[in-house]
Write a protein that binds this DNA or RNA. Structure first.
Lengths: 209, 209
DNA sequence: CCTACCGATCGGTAGG
DNA sequence: CCTACCGATCGGTAGG
């Protein structure tokens, strides 16, 4: 039931490929037969790992969350709370999108747009992941405010909304128009917005483009 | 070839329904058989209007563009250029999204996310529509700047990027989390951003929530 | 974990 | 603009 080590590795390979495909073509576009062909296994063999297409979709969302944690959240949480961490969180997101960690750009952007008007467990999982991310951003802002790096009147939820809007716009525009300038625009806007709320200077040493 | 009036009306009905479905489930999820069932006609009858699924998708994009023009662009272009028109353009977009003119929220948000990593004529049509919209926003900002309503140093493309980011975030968040507060957040951020660039006061009389 | 198959649905066509 | 059909592919299952 838990699976031997060999199974776990195979499962991880399948899910990583599934997340790559879904970032480009969506979770509904994931077909079990196509995945099996891509990976050189039989359809029923692959099916056996999950038991249903919906379980495959849910497992793919979980696998993508783990990648997101590694690529975006960890680099920021590795440094002390405050304005510097807040900027690092935004910068790590831009890097994750720009480097095409998933070939279709941010996995969650694609699948959130795909499922935002379709009820069901997959939508619920995607919405929960999106909420976790918004809460992490909000908490990071709130920490910076309580440390005195942001003005006391800062509305953390409002600022999180604005920063995430700019990140996602960079992802969407760079993909649709094949335009890397979008990342510079998002960076410019985010740094200006943080400066307007900050009580201390924004570092210029790290991750300058 | 051009079609009788009756055909034109039937075609428009089909395309309006197709745009509604695509706003929720995407243009790939549009199936000719399903549309035919929804509208009570035969599959081959419906197929005859378009000749291929791709033509149906392209015609649906054109039909959605016409709705967008009516609902978003026209209300703003009906008033004089300047800061007031710029705000009206943003407000009309928020209203169009919030009223669910398309049941799945902004049609172009859904299909841009769907096709941003898939080459082909449909992607090209969606990208062109998105570029038209960004250019209209940029020109509206540039007009306001040249009229002296915005500070001379205003970067119109940069500001357009930021405003569109906030509009789309409101659409996405309100759908995924069923949260109307997103519209208030976008409105707050847009008005603050416009105030920071304006040389004149932002009107408070119109469209206050 | 394979081959072989199920019914349903897809885009598209033939024939009238 | 209809019925009836085509081959391909879908999610899922039987049997080994």
């Amino acid at each position: 039931m838990a699976g031997r080590p060999r199974d776990e590795r195979a499962r991880a390979t399948i899910l990583r490929h599934a997340a790559d495909v879904a970032s480009k073509e969506g979770l509904a576009g994931l077909s079990i037969g196509r995945l099996a062909t891509d990976l050189g296994v039989s359809k029923s063999g692959l099916f056996g790992y999950f038991g249903s297409k919906e379980e495959l979709q849910l497992a793919t969302v979980r696998a993508a969350s783990a990648v997101y944690l590694d690529e975006v959240v960890q680099p920021a949480m590795a440094i002390a709370p405050g304005l510097h961490r807040l900027w690092r969180l935004c910068d790590a997101w831009l890097s994750y999108s720009r480097r095409r960690v998933f070939p279709g750009g941010c996995f969650f952007f694609t699948v959130a747009a795909e499922f935002d008007a379709r009820p069901g467990p997959v939508r619920d999982a995607v919405a929960a992941a999106s909420l976790d991310w918004a809460r992490l951003m909000t908490r990071t802002i709130e920490d910076a405010r309580q440390l005195g790096d942001l003005v006391e009147t800062t509305d953390a939820e409002q600022l999180a909304f604005e920063l995430i809007a700019l990140l996602e716009m960079a992802n969407a525009t760079s993909l649709l128009h094949d335009d890397p300038v979008a990342y510079r625009r998002a960076r410019t806007a985010i740094r200006a917005r943080l400066r307007s709320a900050a009580t201390v200077p924004l570092s210029t040493s790290d991750a300058e483009k």
